[in-house]
Computed example of a mutant assay.
Amino acid sequence: MIHPTSDCQSKRIGHGTRIWQFTVVLHDAKIGRDCNICSHCFIENNVVIGDRVTVKCGVQLWDGLRVEDDVFIGPNVTFTNDKHPMSRSAEWMCLQTLVESGASIGANATILPGITIGKDAVVGAGSVVTKDVPSGATVVGNPARPIRSINSEA
């Protein structure tokens, strides 16, 4: 299902995926099966999204982002892809960011470029992620710091 008010230019959209109102998906983006892309999102060309991913309202997915299966991306999460952004810079360098399977990113979190968020990791709402997040860890704050691991009690 692609809502009639969205601008979905890509033909690489998996079966069962829903793309809601006022969302733009550029030509070379790849979105897996059974995803839910909520309203007011933007998905750039060099983006790959796995299966059963939820992207809540107001999220922009920029070139270089890889999202594996069963990931949750909360409302207004901000991804970045350039460590030193400058207008019209010839030295622009796109860094790849990876969100591994089962990860969950809370509302309004900011993810700096070149980061890996590990399998089943949780990023708390409003956190600013400046370093890789280990698999199974929960991180919160600015900068985001671990508060627990899936392998620990606290």
Rank of each mutant, 00 (worst) to 15 (best):
T17V: 06
N142E: 05
T110P: 02
R66F: 03
F22S: 13
T138H: 03
G124P: 14
F72H: 12
I13K: 00
C38D: 14
L98Y: 10
T138C: 10
I115G: 07
I73Y: 08
R52A: 01
D7G: 05
G16Q: 09
L61H: 05
T23F: 02
S39F: 10
C35H: 09
G64N: 05
R33W: 04
L26V: 01
N76M: 12
I147G: 04
I111Q: 04
R145P: 12
L95K: 11
C41L: 01
T130R: 08
I37N: 02
V71E: 07
S104P: 03
P85I: 06
V133F: 06
D132R: 04
S10E: 01
E153A: 13
L95I: 07
V133L: 06
V48M: 04
V140G: 05
C8L: 00
V25D: 02
L61F: 03
L65V: 13
S135F: 03
A90Y: 06
I49D: 01
A29R: 02
H15M: 12
G118P: 01
R66I: 15
G126Y: 02
V123T: 06
G14A: 00
E91F: 14
A109I: 07
I37T: 04
D69Q: 11
K30S: 12
V67G: 03
A154F: 14
G136T: 10
G126W: 02
V139I: 10
R52P: 01
R88E: 11
D34T: 08
P75H: 13
I150P: 04
L65G: 08
H27L: 00
R18W: 14
S104A: 14
E44R: 02
D120W: 12
L95T: 09
I43L: 00
A154G: 15
L98S: 08
T130L: 07
P134H: 01
A137W: 11
V59K: 05
F22R: 15
A144I: 11
H40Q: 09
P113S: 06
T54W: 03
V48P: 00
G58D: 13
K131I: 04
M86P: 05
R66Y: 05
S87E: 14
K131Y: 03
D63I: 03
H27M: 00
G32S: 03
K11H: 09
F42N: 05
D7S: 13
E100I: 07
N46H: 09
A107Y: 12
E153W: 11
C38L: 15
